[in-house]
């Protein structure tokens, strides 16, 4: 009979429509501005720079090595090294970026800067609703706007941050132990050195 297929299809639509009143799994829409889904742990949007929370000077982990600048596929990172070295979290003198700009209108959120960074200094944010009316001023982010505390990073990517914190703490302990050993060696070697002189 002509029209049988259409009626069969309409029955399916009706089943879905009526079902949406009784079965919560059929209601898949989220009323966005009022309701928000929590972001996934792995979610990524734009990069930010990490500083450690117990650091009063808010020292960035970034040492201005410029690897991310070189590897960034759309070339949206711009770094100028500072001329002065300051001690980092294990007391080793390191450079800091004088300028660190990311043009997020060019950034394509590919996460390659995060992957190549050997210092765990740049990470991906999950913030959205970043629209602005000023295309040139507001979308070129400077060092100050990019800096976020480690606490913030722990909040948005807990598992990843815990792993990195453990690794950094271990490195710090190792460096301290090494420094102490060197100090001791110096103290014991010093009299001997004067004797040979």
């Amino acid at each position: 009979m002509l029209g049988q297929g259409i009626i069969k299809g309409l029955a399916e639509t009706a089943r879905n429509f009526v079902g949406s009143y009784f079965k919560p799994e059929r209601l898949v829409t989220v009323q966005y501005p009022e309701e928000r889904l929590p972001p996934f742990e792995a979610a990524r949007n734009f990069p930010f720079l990490v500083y450690d929370q117990n650091d009063t000077q808010q020292r960035l982990r970034c040492v201005a090595c410029q690897i991310c600048e070189k590897e960034c596929p759309p070339q949206c990172i711009y770094i100028v090294k500072d001329t002065l070295k300051t001690p980092d979290y294990i007391g080793k003198p390191q450079f800091q970026p004088k300028t660190f700009d990311i043009d997020i209108s060019v950034c394509m959120s590919c996460q390659i800067c995060v992957e190549v960074c050997p210092f765990d200094a740049i990470k991906m944010d999950v913030a959205y609703e970043l629209s602005t009316s000023d295309r040139f001023g507001q979308l070129l982010l400077h060092k100050e706007q990019l800096a976020r505390s480690n606490q913030y990073y722990q909040k948005i990517h807990p598992a990843e941050a815990a792993e990195i914190d453990a690794r950094l703490a271990a490195e710090k302990a190792k460096a301290q132990a090494k420094a102490e050993a060197q100090l001791k060696a110096k103290a014991t070697a010093l009299p001997g050195a004067t004797a040979t002189d």
Partner: peptide
């Protein structure tokens, strides 16, 4: 199954 029930025999689609 749902998709096919909705469409496969639909005369307009055919």
């Amino acid at each position: 199954d749902e998709f096919e029930a909705l469409l496969n025999e639909n005369e307009i689609l055919l």
